[in-house]
């Protein structure tokens, strides 16, 4: 009986994976066709991107500051304290910045999209839109997925910049470094191989958050309870997907020789 339940769970997982893939595929087929909902797209970009900036900026600043202060003692042990800006720069730009920003983004935006679309679904607003001749997939889903896909890279770049500023303050807590020297050292350590894969993978992070959030909200049921489930599972699944995509990105970058 237990084995059966396990198999049922697996079946559900595989089924959901397939459904999300179909949902993403539908976005490319339906969402990319005209007519485009530009107005709604801009609204969503504003809500998803601009409104997330304070949270992302705060976490980015703290992230840079804390990372610097915690790396410092280890580097002192090896006598390479002067390499702190380069090391922090590489870790923020390559990994910490994109992943932490994406997770914060998933927590805030994934849940809000899941809850918003879920509540619209359970209150039959989506059905009403369909009746009134508006394609709900285009209007609600495509705009949100495009917004998350476009906004997360911008948020990540800004978060990286703010994190580096936080790191500069972190360096200056224990020693004195000029702003120009700090940033020269940071960019001295950076390479296009660091910057490009990091920026590219954030598009995939944003897409994953948008697709999962929309899918969970768009397919929610069980009334108001389903809204909560949709919001929660959207955050969990998109967070997991962010790590999986990150793993794949590292592997692909490694295969392409971009990690050297």
């Amino acid at each position: 009986m237990k084995l059966w339940t396990l198999t049922e769970g697996n079946k559900e997982f595989i089924n959901e994976t397939g459904s999300i893939t179909k949902f993403a595929n539908r976005f490319f087929i339906v969402g990319m066709k005209p007519r485009y909902e530009f107005k709604e797209l801009l609204t969503q970009c504003y809500l998803i991107g601009y409104k997330s900036l304070p949270l992302v900026a705060l976490t980015g600043f703290i992230m840079g500051l804390v990372l610097t202060m915690q790396l410092r003692p280890s580097l002192i042990v090896y006598g390479v304290e002067s390499q702190l800006p380069e090391m922090v720069g590489i870790s923020i730009v390559r990994e910490v910045g994109p992943v932490i920003t994406a997770l914060i983004f998933a927590g805030k935006i994934g849940s809000s999209i899941g809850a918003e679309l879920g509540s619209m679904k359970v209150t039959e607003q989506i059905d009403a839109m369909e009746v009134s001749g508006i394609n709900p997939f285009k209007f609600l889903v495509a705009t949100r997925i495009i917004s998350t896909t476009l906004m997360l890279p911008i948020l990540t770049v800004l978060a990286d910049a703010i994190a580096l500023f936080g790191s500069y303050i972190g360096v200056n807590i224990n020693s004195v470094t000029s702003f120009s020297l700090f940033f020269t050292q940071v960019f001295q350590g950076l390479d296009l191989n660091d910057l490009l894969p990091a920026v590219i993978k954030t598009f995939f992070f944003g897409f994953a958050v948008g697709v999962v959030g929309c899918y969970k909200g768009f397919n929610s049921n069980k009334g108001t309870k389903g809204v909560g489930i949709a919001a929660n599972s959207a955050v969990v699944l998109s967070s997991v997907l962010i790590f999986i995509i990150d793993l794949l990105a590292v592997q692909i970058a490694d295969l392409m020789g971009l990690n050297y």
């Binding site: 801009l42 991107g49 601009y50 911008i154 800004l158 960019f187 296009l192």
Partner: peptide, 25 residues
Amino acid sequence: NNMRLGIFVLVGLIVLIFAFYMVGK
């Protein structure tokens, strides 16, 4: 809102271009 969004996107792009420029330089 659109203005704010525009500034947000522009700042993001400027930072990205600056980073690419610095690394490229």
